Computed example of a mutant assay.
Amino acid sequence: MSDPKIFSHAGEGIWTPTPDGNRRRLVLYTDELMVAEFAFDKGGVGALHSHPHVQSSYIAEGRFEVTIDGRTETLEAGSSFIVPSNLVHGVKALEAGRLIDTFTPHRADFL
């Protein structure tokens, strides 16, 4: 891994498109932990997927339909959720919004 990024200032980071048509930027990372921000337009979908990383997500803006292991709830700004390792999960933006996701260990595929 390249040198860890341990400080982040507002507006830093390059937005990159995700395979499902949304946007992502890395905020901070070490070998053990990664923080990433995801932006969705209204109707944007984070397709159902799984990964070995434990994920926690904080809804910074908007409302999302969140599905984890077949269970779906609607969550709004200020809410959060955890995805245990290898569970199938995804989101749908009910309005434009942003998620702040943390992963442990870091997502090497995002670097």
Rank of each mutant, 00 (worst) to 15 (best):
R24A: 12
L111H: 09
G62N: 10
A77N: 04
S8I: 09
H51C: 06
P52H: 11
L111E: 15
G44L: 03
A36S: 09
A93E: 03
S80Y: 05
A36N: 10
D109I: 12
V35D: 04
F38K: 05
I6C: 10
E61Y: 13
V88M: 13
Y29E: 15
L48E: 11
H9G: 08
T104Q: 15
T30H: 03
I14S: 09
P17M: 00
G78S: 10
Y58N: 01
H106M: 14
L28W: 08
I59C: 07
T16I: 12
T67F: 06
V83G: 01
D3H: 14
T72G: 05
E61D: 13
R107S: 09
P52Y: 10
M34S: 09
M34N: 09
F40V: 07
A93P: 06
E76T: 04
G21F: 04
R98D: 05
A108T: 13
Q55K: 01
L33T: 15
A10R: 14
L111A: 11
F7E: 14
A47L: 14
E95Q: 04
D41W: 00
G13C: 06
L75G: 08
D69A: 12
D20K: 06
G13F: 02
A77Q: 07
R98W: 05
I59Y: 06
D109K: 09
G13L: 05
F40K: 02
S57R: 02
G70D: 06
A39H: 11
T72P: 05
I6Q: 14
A96V: 07
H89Y: 05
T67K: 07
D3A: 14
A47T: 13
E65I: 04
I14F: 00
E12R: 06
L87G: 02
F64I: 01
T102W: 08
G13Y: 05
V54E: 11
D109Q: 15
K5D: 08
S50V: 00
G62Q: 02
L75S: 02
Y29C: 12
D31P: 14
H49K: 04
G97A: 04
I6G: 10
K5S: 09
E61V: 09
L26Y: 00
D41M: 01
G97V: 04
G97M: 00
R63W: 08
S80T: 07
V45D: 02
F103K: 11
V66N: 02
L33E: 14
A39D: 12
N22G: 14
E65G: 02
E73H: 02
F40S: 12
V91W: 02
P19C: 02
L75W: 08
I6V: 15
K92E: 12
